[in-house]
Structure formats: structure tokens, C-alpha cells
Design a protein around this nucleic acid. Sequence first.
DNA 1: ACTGTACCCTGTAGGC
DNA 2: TGCCTACAGGGTACAG
Length: 291
Amino acid sequence: MPELPEVEIVRRGLEPALQGKVFARVEQHRPDLRFPLPEDFTARLRGRKVERLQRRGKYLLAHLSGGEVLLMHLGMTGRFTVHGGRLPPTIKDNDGPVRATHDHVVFHMQGGGSVTYNDPRRFGFMMLIAEQGLDEHPLLHHLGIEPLGKALTPEYLAQHARGKKVSLKPFLADQRIVAGLGNIYACEALYRARLSPTRAAATIAGKTGKPNERAAALVPAVRSVLEDAIRAGGSSLRDYRHADGELGTFQHAFCVYDREGESCLRKGCGGTVRRIVQSGRSTFYCPKCQR
DNA sequence: ACTGTACCCTGTAGGC
DNA sequence: TGCCTACAGGGTACAG
């Protein structure tokens, strides 16, 4: 679920609860999420301090004292919730532990705050990896550039699109090219750039990989949609919430996503938003003004 | 090397 | 009400 803006909002929400704080106790309520949780997970976190909370693409990285990094991914339905003060310890009664369904991990920090990880579908995961050589870790090394940094240029996109037959939308959502764009923001960025999601990626570049006007249009489209979404606190569709439980509001600013059959919002266009399936996922676009 | 499909898992919405 | 299907913002493994 969460794409770059949502993960960034979560990061900002978790920062005051985790950064500079020490794990007092960690509850683990099942052995695995998408992957097995780390060996001796709770023991290895206890006593460690979170030096820094970083985002890379859709990943969260908590740099810990002692040279390890807690790598976290929210999958589709992962959610962190910060509890101020003390969370009552898990109570047992005749029916077993009393806690919310799908609360899988709880971080209790020294000083009283705690953070709960809830994930119904369990597509998310947590790993403990060495800080040294972090960028070469198998889960991170293939990641493309950060779209909000200086590296996102028409030249970069064109260079990677050169010769590619894949459609523009799956190209944009490919984490190896740009890290952090997912289904929603790829659709919305293409709408802003007035580009059809079905056009071949190669058509944003010349034969030599030189960017054309389409590549030039994509850069501000991608950047602005992500910035606007972060400003709005992300998009809340089904599961997504901020770490404090608040909802993002960017879903109200969608121009095409989940608007099948509704009219295009571009002034004077008069087209109708269409839904197609690409790479097994829904794509929404206006066939009239996106070419 | 690419490209598309199936799959992981649970919850929800809609048709009948 | 219940049953069934399709679908959901993630990524990966595999077949062709």
C-alpha cells in the first residue's frame, strides 16, 4: 500500500518516538511476517539505541547503536502506531493475549513510549542487517534513484528507457529505475505529464538515449505529485494511517486513480477516465488527454 | 535480457 | 443472511 509519500509520513511520525531512544522491550507475537523475523529478534533489539531513522524508496531503516540496521517494509497493509506514555502490557485472560488482531510486533522504548506494528496481510517484513555494506544488501542494491533528489532528470529517465518495450506505467513503478513510485503515484504522475501509460517506455528517449519533451515533462510531474502527496499527509484508502492514527488526505486530490468512468478533471478535456490492467495491476488514465 | 503471470495473505465490496 | 468472486497501495519467483 504505502508508496513513497506514505512511508515518508510514517518515518516523520516515528522519528520522535524512536530516534535517540533505546529499546526497553520488544514483543513479538508470531515467528514471521512475509519472511521469518530475525533470529533472536527481541533480544538483539533490547538495549540498542536508534541513532537515525531513514527512508530509502519504500523502505524504512532504523540505524542502531552497535552497527546494525533494522530494515522495515510495510508491504500493502503494514501500519505503525505510536502510543505516548505507557502501553499497558499485553494482558492474558482465559482466551489468551488481549490485543488488536494482527498486532505482530510492539517496540517498548525506554522512557515510556511504544510503537505497534500491525499488518493484516503480512506482506511487510523486518530484518536486522549490518550497517556496513548496507547499499549492497540484496534488498537495497537494485534500488533506483530517489525521485525527490537531484538524480531525477530527463537524462536519467531517458537513459534507462532507451530501447525498452515495457509500457511507461510499469516502467515508472519499477523500483530499479525510480525507488518509491507505486501504482497510485505512477498513474497520477503520468496524468500530470499528459502521457499515456500504454506508450512504450522507449518513446521518451531518442535512439541514442537522449531525452525528448516527454521525458522532460515526466520529471516535474513525478516530483510534484510526490511533494503534493507528502504535503497532504499521504493518501488513505483502506489501511493507511499516520503513526498517530490520523488519515492522509491526498486521495481527495487524485485525478485518475480509482476514478473509472468519471470525467477527466483537466479543463476543457471532456474525456472519461478508463481502467485497464497492466502487469496484473489497475491503471487509470484519460485516453483523451494522455497521449 | 526482457515480459507477463502466479503467488504470498487477509479483508472487503458487490453480485446473486 | 450467506456464498462466491474479484480486487486491494507491496515484491518475488518462475516460465516462456
